[in-house]
Design a protein around this nucleic acid. Structure first.
Lengths: 198, 198
DNA sequence: TGTACATCAGTGAACGCGCGTTCACTGATGTAC
DNA sequence: TGTACATCAGTGAACGCGCGTTCACTGATGTAC
């Protein structure tokens, strides 16, 4: 080893982070390796010291996000915090809509992922499961619908509202959709910011 | 005019239709003009007799879909048919999920459109408004939420369920999400296949 | 009705360009002695 | 402690390839006479 310990890992992480942000903003195939490396303060050629292919980086970027979210949720759970309300509030929000770089990839990349390989799709599914899991703990089993079923519907509704509002050009209408969805879901579940569960 | 009347229009429509299906399946930038023209039984070079750029075709494909849906809805309205239930049933369904080529572009192309120009995004918005409009007629104003607000939430929830379930690799899970969302939305609104509104 | 001509939808080769990937090289830094 | 050497993360030129777009050409068909 003729290099400082951990430097390679740090560089790799920097590439992944910059890639995630660029992918979020402009999509997988529209972002070149050149751009990613430049954003990370490096040059084209070095990419292949870290990744075998561009696809491998894509998987990595999604897994990274999934792991981050999972550990956030685990931490909150350990502290006994009920997340359902606060996740709904922050996920389906104008801040989240406009913060493109750090947006949830469920929102930023659905079409890209739908056409990608199984590893990429698995990583995406993992992010979705984490989101649904949060809601599952915020609802109760009902006679005609299990908490799990409800959580899948709620999570996909959150994603849908954000996907649509990110795609709509008209900011006012985008915001309206965002707010309507938040209100609708909160109302159904008896959730509100002022009256959090537990 | 040294050519049969309407032939050029017919050819153009064939190109648009094939493009729409290919875009739905694989996305805008992943489909080449060569492929589209081949699918329409023509060769590369002729494309520019019909369109100035590839982007123009993209707009056309979306507008075509929007117009089709709008006229379908108008026809149903004229016949006094309430569409909310039947659109929910058919939109959030496994048939719709797997029929990739004829799928609603709201589901197939959100990320692509989010990065496209204003004309493309306007055409996409038009498709969404048509969907929301259908639901608006199926709900009533409530004390805390107008019918319009509810319809935006419902429409975006439908799209979300389908976007997620199309992206998920695992068919069983995809189907579960689809069914859960349909059940959830139907139940909230007192809609069911056996008990349609009106 | 028959013939010469004009039109233009469609053809296919060619062009630039950008991108993913490869590769020979560099030079800073850790290690052996 | 000081010096020679080995390593390997990072560099940047070069490669193929595919794609959007252009363009000179073709040939079937409608029109003029």
């Amino acid at each position: 080893m003729a290099h400082p310990t951990g430097q390679k890992e740090e560089t790799r992480a920097r590439i992944v982070e910059n890639a995630r942000k660029l992918f979020n903003r402009r999509g997988f195939s529209e972002v070149s390796i050149d751009e990613i490396m430049l954003a990370a303060g490096l040059t084209r050629g070095g990419f292949y010291n870290h990744f075998k292919t561009k696809d491998e980086l894509y998987v990595e970027a999604l897994q990274d996000f999934a792991a981050m979210r999972e550990s956030e949720h685990r931490r909150a759970l350990d502290e006994g915090i009920s997340l359902a309300v606060r996740v709904l509030e922050s996920y389906v929000s104008d801040d989240h809509r406009t913060d493109v770089e750090n947006q949830c990839p469920l929102i930023a990349l659905p079409s890209d992922v739908a056409r990608a390989g199984p590893q990429v799709r698995d990583a995406y599914e993992r992010v979705f499961r984490a989101l649904a899991h949060v809601f599952e703990s915020g609802v109760s089993d009902a006679e005609d619908m299990s908490a799990r079923e409800q959580s899948l519907a709620i999570a996909s509704a959150c994603v849908g509202a954000m996907v649509i509002s990110r795609t709509i050009d008209n900011a006012e209408f985008a915001e309206e959709i965002c707010l309507a969805a938040k209100k609708y879901l909160g109302r159904i579940n008896g959730w509100s910011a002022s009256k959090p569960l537990q």
